[in-house]
Design a protein around this nucleic acid. Sequence first.
DNA 1: CAGCTATAGTTCGATATCGAACTTGATTAT
DNA 2: ATAATCAAGTTCGATATCGAACTATAGCTG
Lengths: 151, 151
Amino acid sequence: MAAEPEDHPDIQVFDEIRYIEHLVRTAIARKLPVGLTYPQFEVMNLLSRRGDGITPLEIARALQMTKSGLTNTLQRLHARNLVRVEHCQADGRRKRIWLTPDGRLAYGQSMVAIRPKMEDLRDGFTQKEFRDALPFLKALRTWLGEKPSVS
Amino acid sequence: MAAEPEDHPDIQVFDEIRYIEHLVRTAIARKLPVGLTYPQFEVMNLLSRRGDGITPLEIARALQMTKSGLTNTLQRLHARNLVRVEHCQADGRRKRIWLTPDGRLAYGQSMVAIRPKMEDLRDGFTQKEFRDALPFLKALRTWLGEKPSVS
DNA sequence: CAGCTATAGTTCGATATCGAACTTGATTAT
DNA sequence: ATAATCAAGTTCGATATCGAACTATAGCTG
């Protein structure tokens, strides 16, 4: 809900965080090329930024998705030929995921669509403001994340 | 994804926010009484905190849900007799939503289940830390929210 | 080596979420 | 007054998300 002054500061912080998360998600989702959803973009973003060839479990952990949720998303990306799936020969249980050329193209188009908004944001706020906000957010995330898991 | 040092501060901030939102959501969801889901709890939480008798549209706006998403949740809450729905006589298009006694009971049980974690949190961080984090978060949310909407 | 345990991924059913189209009731403009 | 427009809510189809149960492979232990 919208944070309101009568709330305790901690409640207000969580309300603002929930709101911001939602705004970012919808802002990005609405700019994506047709056919791409936000979670699909996130997976491709991870593959592009953190390197190809990682396993589904690594992706799920990095994106706070469940294994079953990621299976779903990867199947859709694969159906559109945006990722390639390889069986790991060293460990028969694992798979490794790569972006295909089509995948890189779609990712590039997504980034082009998102760029203007990101540039506006960097005009509206300084990098120092973001840097100054980080320690508390990291501490909060770490505290909340003691006993994490991926199903 | 997990924020990593090589990222720009703004990216890291959004990653941390996404992570925190997810941790809070799952932490609460796992403590709720059986049969209650996180969005159902959020609706009851709003009714309890901001007052009974508000309309579905007001709830949707406050919780960043779409109208159709809220219709779904309200139908489930109503099916379990946790909310009461009244047709607004002043405006035939609107409805007004109340918690039922069962709803208040379920909400109370949820809060009892969540309380220990909240108290731990208030031991781990000071209210000043939350207060100090608020101005930036509010500014960011406001900036992102220019041109908001509810479908 | 045989069996137990742990890990990686999938399947399934239930709920959530979104957007578009639709219905119905209010409001506005001429 | 009546037609056009707007506002509140629902329906529908598609995708997402979660947890539990399941399969298959790997690794460990006696």
